[in-house]
Amino acid sequence: MDIIVEAISLTKRYNNVIAIDNISFNIYKGEIFSFLGPNGSGKTTTVEILACIRKPTSGTAKILGYSINKEVNEIKKRIGILPQEFTFFDLLTVKECVEFIGKIYGTKYDIKQILEIFRLEEYKNKKFRELSGGLKRRVGLAMSIVNDPDLLFLDEPTTGLDPESRRDVWKYILNLKKLGKTIFLTTHYMEEAEKLSDRIGIIIKGKLVVLDEVKNLINNYGGGFRLVIYLDKNIEENVVKILQDNNYKFDKKDNVIICNLSNKREANLLASELIRKGIENFEMKYPSVEDAFLNLVGYKISEMGELI
């Protein structure tokens, strides 16, 4: 597999803050590689070092075979970037924004096609400041592929968007992957990392806690399947009886029973048993990246990106 990014012992200090601490990883051709971590964990710092916007304090990296220390221009020609909280010149139209970046690269591009990919045709003459948050990100994505880059850096591409726009942006990111782009994505949304990534690196306080394929992360750290049963007085006894009769392990907390199961088959069996007894107020929980994260880190990440 072609290595697109090879980060070797990257460290960055700002005065006394260590933003990233001796990080090494590879990104392979065609994958979506994500950094998942709360605010301040060093995601942006890593992206900006790899995109040659900042210099590392120590360590180095090769991007598409070029050194970030010596071949900055070669790298910049071949990458695209969507910075965190992307904004651009307010008074330029969508089309002008894309064309402006095009002129800076000086490479050939098909403006019609790019607008089409991101469904921006109908907005092409709208000023940037008149766009909704989701549309702004789409324009940012469009701008990031003008030079037909091999590698894309998407730094928190959906942060601050409402859930609907977020899903909308996901669609376009997956589309970019289909176009053969290698993508380095950062996020603090568990669901986003899980839905989009091939591999995820969990980064906390500048250190990579774990780095693996999504399914391995879930299998190794996500815990088993769970059935969550919501109780009311009438059924409580009934449910407890069923579980005890069948030797299921469970925790009861207030009006909720969480039952840990070893696999999907076992979960289905219990579910059908419950339905047969007329109990329908329950949920099947598959293990997710969120579970893996919780198990590994001991915290969740809030909507705002803070550890909780």
């Binding site: 900006e48 995109a51 040659c52 916007i53 221009n73 910049k76 020609k77 990458i79 695209g80 970037i81 910075p83 965190q84 909280e85 992307f86 904004t87 651009f88 010149f89 970046i101 800076i104 690269y105 701008m143 030079n147 850096f153």
Partner: peptide, 12 residues
Amino acid sequence: KGILKRLLGTPL
């Protein structure tokens, strides 16, 4: 606003 960062990511 970070527009500079966007430009720093190009060969400008």
